[in-house]
Simulated scan of single mutants.
Amino acid sequence: MTLAIERPVGVFGRKDLPDDWAHEQVTYFQDPETGLRAIVAIHDTTLGPALGGTRFYPYEDESVALTDVLRLSQGMTYKSAVAGLPLGGGKAVILGDPATMKTQALLEAYGRFVQTLGGRYITAGDVGTNSDDLDVIGRVTEHVVGRNVAAGGSGDSAPMTALGVFQAMRAGARAVWGVPSLAGRTVGVEGVGKVGYQLIDLLIADGASVVAGDVNSSALERVVHDFRGVRTTGSIIDLDVDIYAPCAMGAILTGGAVVDIRAKLICGAANNQLAHPAVERQLADRGITWVPDYVANGGGIIQVAGERESAAMDQVRARVEKIFDTTVEVLDTAKREGMLAGAAADTVAEARISSSRARRTSPCTR
């Protein structure tokens, strides 16, 4: 979703979130013994239980954490809907630095918190959490996906998330240059953690040149060691590249940043990439095509949704690869109807949710 970042407090009456589609439930939890402070936001459960990852991050303060979880959970509603999944939207944040605070006791306390929600929220991995953490959380709640295979899960979702972004990028290349291939294109990947790293591998295999950027020097060193020929830098957004792939934190696309972007296509794994809805219009006015983030980065949730139904990984992979078709549909609709891609994607998602809500309230279904 393309929502503005502000610094309000509380949940109600926020200018940065639509008044006509409020969150169903926002729950706080703390455990003084472990230092756990967590927030779970359930945005919508029309299509099914709310599923979304747990972000463990050293937020500046509680207000910033709340804004992030509200925006992310709403984005998950749209992500699941546009992917055609029987899931609603939710998200969780744990406040603190995982490098210094993460312990098994804290994760178990968090798992007990998730369990109290009775299955309305299902957690998975996100920034600051991984499959090992989910194994620990899974000791005390069954409402968790993305655990290691040995623990009964489907493993790290980063490869499938990267595959989805790659397919969306191919569809974007088709829209911009007429060919669904990245061969000969220069792609700037901003953020080379779990997903960005996997994306680089796919880009190189397709014949693209890659420039990698990250504030974490260790992440860049890993890329240099593992991928010959990849250039590295501190920042990507203003480089002379064909495609810009934001794969770190959200709100990277600001009104001020737009004037410096030289890429013709933006497609990445980061959530909530637009700092404000008007930014997409600014991009379009400069001839830059933006693939809506929740369309491109749906591979991870497709994987964990498959885990819930015990789907084989080849089935999951085939579903993730269909992100190419979904992206083509969104971009073609936007061009045909003279609308922005974000509005076209929202239309697809909202239609699916509205249809399900209508079926649930129809007298014939009571």
Rank of each mutant, 00 (worst) to 15 (best):
N271H: 13
T254L: 00
A305F: 09
P292S: 05
C267A: 08
F166L: 02
R360M: 14
D68R: 01
R286A: 01
R120G: 05
I236M: 13
L87A: 11
D226G: 07
Q115G: 03
G89Y: 08
P180Q: 11
D238V: 09
I288M: 02
V230K: 10
I137D: 00
E321P: 00
A275N: 07
S157V: 13
G48A: 07
M160C: 12
E33N: 13
S131L: 04
V330P: 01
S217T: 15
T77H: 02
S354A: 15
V210Y: 09
R357S: 15
D135F: 06
A212D: 10
Y28A: 11
P246N: 11
Q315W: 08
G48N: 06
V316K: 05
M313Y: 07
L117F: 08
G234A: 13
N272I: 03
T34N: 04
A92V: 03
R262K: 15
S355G: 14
T77G: 01
H143W: 15
V330D: 02
G119T: 08
H276V: 00
L66C: 10
G298V: 10
T186I: 12
T67Y: 09
E24P: 00
N272F: 03
K322P: 00
E321A: 02
A257F: 07
L274Y: 04
V295D: 01
D214K: 05
I236C: 07
W290D: 01
L274E: 00
A99H: 14
R262S: 05
I204F: 11
A158H: 06
P292M: 02
S354P: 04
A83W: 04
G119R: 06
G188K: 12
T161G: 10
A109Y: 04
A92I: 06
A173W: 03
A4L: 08
W290G: 00
D293C: 02
D240W: 10
V348N: 07
A245V: 07
A341T: 08
L331T: 05
P246I: 05
G229I: 10
V189D: 09
A305N: 10
V176W: 11
I243F: 03
D44W: 00
S73E: 06
I243E: 02
G52N: 09
G153H: 08
G89W: 00
G164V: 06
E60W: 13
I301P: 00
I302M: 09
A65Y: 04
T186C: 11
H143D: 13
G229S: 13
I353E: 02
A92Q: 04
A4M: 10
R308P: 03
M169T: 02
G207Y: 13
N216A: 14
G255E: 11
S217Y: 10
Q74M: 15
G338L: 08
A81L: 05
L17Q: 06
E190Y: 14
T326G: 03
R231E: 14
W177H: 02
I200M: 06
T77M: 03
R231S: 14
Y294N: 01
Q198R: 15
V136I: 15
A4I: 09
K194T: 14
